[in-house]
């Protein structure tokens, strides 16, 4: 686990230690419709929800080897929504008994001057992207299917191009630490999406 260069004690000390359980996969553009169709059938009956978000990833380098990363996200298609600041810990693959990737996570809603604040603190933006896609829920599980767009001109979210011909599919649950049972539900759900999408625990370190 990375230790934050600035004091972050309140985050892990006082509040509940929340963990995000994550499975990832992707679907090709031409199969998106069948996946959405299946998800509509499998998930809770709710209004189809789409999102268009702009995410900026900020780094703070300290004496430690790995930098401290914060993610700022804002909605581009809905006005009046708060910005979303997110801290994600180092993912743990775990053993075979746990069917999902687990990482620490802290989610905070913020005002819109978040970027200024981060920059003032000494963070600098590492990269940014636009995410556009669909959200589904089933109980506490959240399923997002979205396309990642590169931003051609920094800061200009109008000129974007898709990163690939696939949509990223993420199945996640945010739960207090130690609730590994949720990963069983996630595995079961992921089974139902096969063979359309294979949701797996993917170690990002492997892809560095």
């Amino acid at each position: 686990m990375e230790a934050p260069p600035v004091t972050m004690m309140p985050v892990t000390g006082g509040t509940i230690n929340m963990m995000e359980y994550l499975l990832q996969g992707s679907v090709l553009d031409q199969s998106l419709e069948s996946l959405l169709h299946r998800l509509r059938g499998l998930c809770d009956n709710m209004e189809p929800e789409t999102f268009l978000d702009h995410e900026m990833v900020f780094l703070l380098k300290g004496q430690q080897a790995s930098p401290f990363v914060l993610r700022a996200r804002r909605s581009m298609d809905k006005t009046g929504m708060p910005w979303h600041l997110r801290y994600l810990g180092q993912p743990e693959i775990g053993d075979k008994n746990r069917h999902a990737l687990v990482r620490n996570c802290v989610d905070i809603a913020t005002s819109e001057n978040l970027t200024d604040f981060l920059v003032e603190m000494g963070f600098r933006m590492d990269h940014e992207f636009v995410a556009k896609g669909h959200v589904f829920r089933k109980g506490i599980m959240k399923i997002v299917v979205y396309k990642i767009f590169r931003i051609l001109m920094p800061g200009n979210t109008e000129s974007i191009e898709p990163l690939s011909l696939s949509y990223l599919v993420e199945l996640s649950v945010v739960a207090p630490a130690g609730q590994d049972m949720v990963s069983d539900d996630m595995r079961n759900f992921a089974e139902q999406l096969k063979p359309l999408v294979h949701l797996e625990k993917i170690d990002p370190k492997r892809l560095m």
């Binding site: 990832q24 996969g25 992707s26 090709l28 990223l168 990002p204």
Partner: peptide, 16 residues
């Protein structure tokens, strides 16, 4: 061809 593992890896690396 409903999914492409290479794309999966690329996308995961991009968000990570």
């Amino acid at each position: 061809q409903t999914f492409n593992p290479t794309d999966t890896n690329a996308l995961v690396a991009a968000v990570a």
